[in-house]
Amino acid sequence: MEITIIQLFNGLSMGSILLLIALGLAVTFGLMNVINMAHGELIMIGAYATYITQNLFNDYLPASLFNWYFVLSIPVSFMVAFLIGWLLEVSLIRFLYGRPLDSLLATWGIALMLQQLARTIFGAPNVAVKSPTWLDGGFRLMDGVVLPYKRLFIILLVIVTLVAMFLYIYRSHAGRRMRAVMQNRDMAACLGISTRRVDSMTFAIGSGVAGIAGCALTLMGPIGPSLGTYYIVDAFMVVVLGGVGKLVGTIVGAVGIGVTGTMFEYWTNASLGKVLVFLCIVAFLQWKPKGLVAMKTRSLD
């Protein structure tokens, strides 16, 4: 019983991280049909932004304030990743609309360069980010079941991000424009929506969310230049499984992969667990080839 709860919780925690990563991907892929392989590197950038914030607090502020660096690092990593994502869109991605496979290759090249850049600046070894003391310890649910505050905090962070995204997409003017472009780009353009601006804004927001994911990952362990590559393929599997167009698909996909993955890895071992998850995804796609929630469309490419 205890073990089941712990595994379930670990799966939920894994799923929430995947969700945070896949959220940005789902939006950029759904809106612009661009596959951003550099998304993992934006996570890495967010993580290093947190690392730098921590070091700045350490060096220039009194020790009593150190615990609060993390509160600041969340918006900082969002902004840094947001800016870099915006730059990326303006300088490269906009030349690649309508060519999803090419966008995949080009952004992969960017990912390679960003990784190497991080290696040059911060060095190849992993660096540790000291988590604030108020996240140490855990919540004791029952005997033998302690839920670490760090993981609970990540889940909370994901929920907050999710609500913010929901409000942005479904309750704001900018979000309405975004959905309009997503549903019918030409029609939206005819009605006076600047699709260019919506595109770069959306891409930047997706990147910013990746930055938050990077910030959250610093709680899970040391960070390194290839941090993003561990998660990026799983995150893309979430998008494939969940389908594009609605947030709910991404949520179910992420939690599903997180929970089943952790369960399989517990029952078998880490390597076999991954194989089983992959087989499950392929099997699921036999049933719903377009993912869980697909945008309804009458167009035939």
Binding site: I35, P100, L101, L104, V233, S271, V275, I281, P289
Partner: peptide
């Protein structure tokens, strides 16, 4: 995949996942 018309980037992502699981399997 092809029979279900899973193609384009979806297929590409699946092949990349194939790489990851094969490598983990061989290491494991």
């Amino acid at each position: 995949t092809f029979r279900n018309r899973i193609r384009g980037v979806y297929f590409t992502i699946l092949t990349q996942a194939l790489v990851i699981i094969t490598v983990t399997l061989f290491i494991g």
